[in-house]
């Protein structure tokens, strides 16, 4: 009985997703977009699983090569790196100035300041992380540890 319910749920949800896709078929002006939408759908999946994940896993693995210190460096490098990566991905268009004519038409302002702002943000995160590390090292030394 459970198997039947699971199979029914599965079919129902696949049918819903399939039906949703037919919205594109209803409007002939959207037909030329079908390959692009499929590429972006599958591309987002592959890019995450087979590019983004291996990249950040490898970068994280490289952190094991950091010199051994009494207060481990690993998270003090990991956190600003993750912060930089996250903000870069989320706010990518402004940082790399992609789509500037549309931004200009919509807001009357361009994208010129974003790269420098992002670099300052990364610098700030790195500086705070380094400062906290120094404080932790000092406190440990003071405690005689």
């Amino acid at each position: 009985m459970r198997t039947v319910a699971r199979a029914a749920g599965l079919l129902g949800c696949v049918a819903l997703a399939g039906y949703a896709a037919t919205i594109i078929l209803r409007d002939p002006t959207l037909h030329p977009s079908i390959p692009g939408m499929l590429i972006w759908f599958v591309g987002a999946l592959l890019l995450h699983d087979l590019v983004l994940f291996p990249l950040y896993a490898a970068a994280d693995r490289a952190l094991t090569l950091l010199p051994a210190t009494r207060v481990p460096l690993v998270n003090h490098v990991r956190l600003p790196l993750l912060g930089a990566g996250l903000t870069f991905l989320v706010y990518l268009p402004g940082i790399v100035r992609q789509g500037e004519p549309v931004v200009l038409g919509a807001s009357g302002l361009g994208q010129a300041p974003f790269l420098a702002r992002w670099l300052w943000l990364v610098l700030a995160m790195t500086a705070v992380s380094a400062l906290v590390w120094v404080v932790r090292v000092t406190r440990r030394s003071a405690a005689g540890g």
């Binding site: 949800c13 696949v14 819903l16 997703a17 039906y19 949703a20 896709a21 919205i23 594109i24 409007d27 959207l30 977009s33 692009g36 939408m37 972006w40 759908f41 706010y91 990518l92 268009p93 402004g94 992609q98 789509g99 549309v102 931004v103 919509a106 807001s107």
Partner: peptide, 25 residues
Amino acid sequence: IQYDYVFGFSFYAAHYVGAWVFIAG
């Protein structure tokens, strides 16, 4: 939201269809 239409298809249609595909999953 950042006015980057690099994907080249209708955002409204794609985001609505994508939403239902996601809801199903």
